[in-house]
């Protein structure tokens, strides 16, 4: 077994040193593919995180034409709780006035001549996470708008719709770049293996004549593919990290002020990307060598 491994590793090393030009080309292509895919994936993941943060603050405000009495509040509560809601808060006209005044801070003197009941009473509804899809929110909002005594329902509909559209678009881009990664990787590995086989044609012929087993011929190509995948994805992720640090360094101040704090992949995600790229390249290489050499 030890001798098998030594023989296979020495074959792999020999092959890499002899065909390093085509290997380098494949390595660069894999690096770029991984970089493109992981860039969009990172943006997607961060956008989802932003969505989660926004979701935590998501609430629907139902403005009422009259201040509801206890019985009506119970009735509203009963109807609203048919949906999955976390919390329902009734805000009276006076409470709304106080909140508004507190928000105005030093400028609250503008309210001096304004009656304290000029703001409508409202119901603040915090939906559960299971109700956060855009379609469900729309349905819920439509239902609330039809309740008696409701003037208007507000939840930043336009903004939420745009945000969800953006997330959908990102999802498509991530899927496309993922597909691109698989196609380029498979194509480049196949191409690289073909070049290697061509440049080592006489050697492979000799190996067969002296009785090399299929695994003796196949495993070095498989290892080459795996190494290309491992090094290519590591290089791609390193480039992405440098880009990430550059963005953080240059836009950190703005990012800190906004709610959009950019974060990098976790160690487990990084490992998963490297392992998947390695397996993808090794698999591509395995399929190519079986096809080209028919072994």
């Amino acid at each position: 077994m030890m001798n098998f491994l030594l023989a296979v590793f020495s074959q792999t090393w020999r092959s890499i040193t002899e065909t390093w030009r085509s290997q380098l080309l494949s390595l660069i292509t894999i690096t770029l593919s991984v970089l493109i895919f992981t860039f969009f994936y990172l943006v997607y993941v961060n956008t989802l995180q932003l969505g989660n943060r926004l979701d935590n603050d998501l609430r629907l405000i139902v403005y009422l034409d009259e201040q509801p009495d206890q019985a009506l509040q119970q009735e509203y509560r009963r109807k609203i709780e048919k949906f999955e809601v976390e919390r329902i808060t009734f805000v009276s006209k006076l409470e709304a006035y106080d909140r508004f005044k507190a928000q105005l801070k030093e400028s609250d003197d503008v309210l001096k001549d304004v009656p304290k009941d000029f703001l409508p009473s409202s119901i603040e509804i915090y939906p559960r996470r299971s109700l956060h899809s855009l379609a469900q929110l729309k349905d819920f909002s439509d239902y609330l708008a039809k309740l008696p005594g409701v003037l208007k329902v507000q939840y930043g509909r336009e903004w939420v719709e745009r945000f969800y559209s953006f997330v959908q678009l990102l999802r498509v881009v991530v899927l496309l770049s993922g597909t691109l990664l698989i196609l380029t990787t498979t194509f480049m590995i196949g191409h690289s293996i073909r070049l290697t086989v061509f440049s080592r044609k006489r050697e492979l012929e000799l190996l067969r004549l002296v009785g090399a087993s299929n695994s003796y011929i196949r495993v070095p190509f498989f290892l080459e593919g795996a190494l290309l995948g491992a090094f290519g994805s590591t290089a791609g992720l390193s480039a992405l990290y440098l880009l990430f640090r550059w963005i953080q360094g240059n836009f950190a101040a703005q990012a800190a002020q906004s709610m959009f704090a950019f974060s990098f992949f976790s160690a487990s995600t990084l490992l998963a990307i490297i392992v998947l790229s390695t397996l993808l390249c090794a698999g591509g290489s395995f399929v190519s060598i079986r096809k080209i050499l028919s072994i």
Binding site: A7, S10, R208, L209, V210, G211, A212, S213, Y216
Partner: peptide, 29 residues
């Protein structure tokens, strides 16, 4: 084939490999 040694008429040597490497093939496999 690993139990048979063949010296071909056209030698079947790899010209860019050293003599030692050419000989080693039959044992490495």
């Amino acid at each position: 084939r690993r139990r048979i040694g063949v010296a071909y008429q056209d030698f079947k040597l790899l010209p860019d490999k050293t003599v030692a490497q050419n000989i080693a093939y039959s044992m490495e496999v």
